[in-house]
Design a protein around this nucleic acid. Sequence first.
DNA 1: TCTTGACATAGAGTTTACTCTACATTGTAT
DNA 2: ATACAATGTAGAGTAAACTCTATGTCAAGA
Lengths: 123, 123
Amino acid sequence: MEYSIGEFSRLTNLGIHTLRYYEHEHLITPGRNSSNRRCYTDKDLAWIEFIKRLKDTGMPIKEIQHYSELRAEGEPTLSERIQILISHRKALNEQIDQLQEHMKKLDEKIKFYQCEIENATRE
Amino acid sequence: MEYSIGEFSRLTNLGIHTLRYYEHEHLITPGRNSSNRRCYTDKDLAWIEFIKRLKDTGMPIKEIQHYSELRAEGEPTLSERIQILISHRKALNEQIDQLQEHMKKLDEKIKFYQCEIENATRE
DNA sequence: TCTTGACATAGAGTTTACTCTACATTGTAT
DNA sequence: ATACAATGTAGAGTAAACTCTATGTCAAGA
C-alpha cells in the first residue's frame, strides 16, 4: 500500500508539517509520484513507528538522524546500529530505574501529606 | 544553615542563572539579607529537590509554578496539592509502563538484528 | 471552465526551559 | 584605598522540536 502525506499523517498521528520537517531532517525519505507528491509505504510506516519509539524514550532528533543515515547506508552499518541500540537500551534502563525511584519518593510524600490531613481533621 | 546563591547552586547542581529564573517564575522565594542578597535555607534545599523530582518526572514548569503557589498559601490548599500529586503519580505510572513496553520492543529489535548479523557471518 | 481541496516549497514564528550579557553594587583580601 | 570576586537586575539570546504562513501547483468534481 502507498499513502499520501494526508493519509500517512492520520495513520501515524503526526501532523503533516511534522512529517515534512522529519523529511527535511533526513529521518525519512518517502518516494514521489509523477506529480512530485510524497508516496509513503508500509515500510515507511514501520520505520516512523520506530522513530516515535526512539523519540518517546528520549533520543534527540539529531541522534535519530544519525541512525537514519546509517540505516540508509544499509547492511554495512548494521553492527554500528546495533551498538547504538544497545547503548540506548542501557540509557532507557537507567531512565526507568530513576523514574521508579521518583515514584517511591512521590508515594512517600503523598502518604505524609495524607497523614497531615488526618491529623488536621482529628483536631 | 543559610546559603548564598553560589553555595546553593553547588548544593543543588542548578546554575545560578537557573535559580534566579526559578525565582522569577515563582517556583522558589528565598529570603534576602540586609544587602539584598538571596539567603537560601535547608527548607529551600528540600523544596528545590522536590521541584527537581517533579521536573524529572515530566511536570512542566507552569504546573510546578501552580503547585508552588498553592504551597505558598499553606495548609488550606493541602488537599488540592495531594490531588495534584496523586494525579501526577498516575501519569508517572503510565509513563513507566510505556517505557517498559518500549524497552520490550527495543529488545526484540536488537535480537532480530543480532540474528541478521549471525546469518550474514555464516554465509 | 471554474472552483475547491490536497499537496508543494521556503521561510517565519512559537514554546519551553534555560543561559548569557551588560552593567551596577557590595563584601573581602591586600 | 583599591582591586576583584560574588552578587544584583533587566533583558537578549539559544536550542530543540515543532507549527504555521505565504504562495504556488495540480487533479477532480459541479
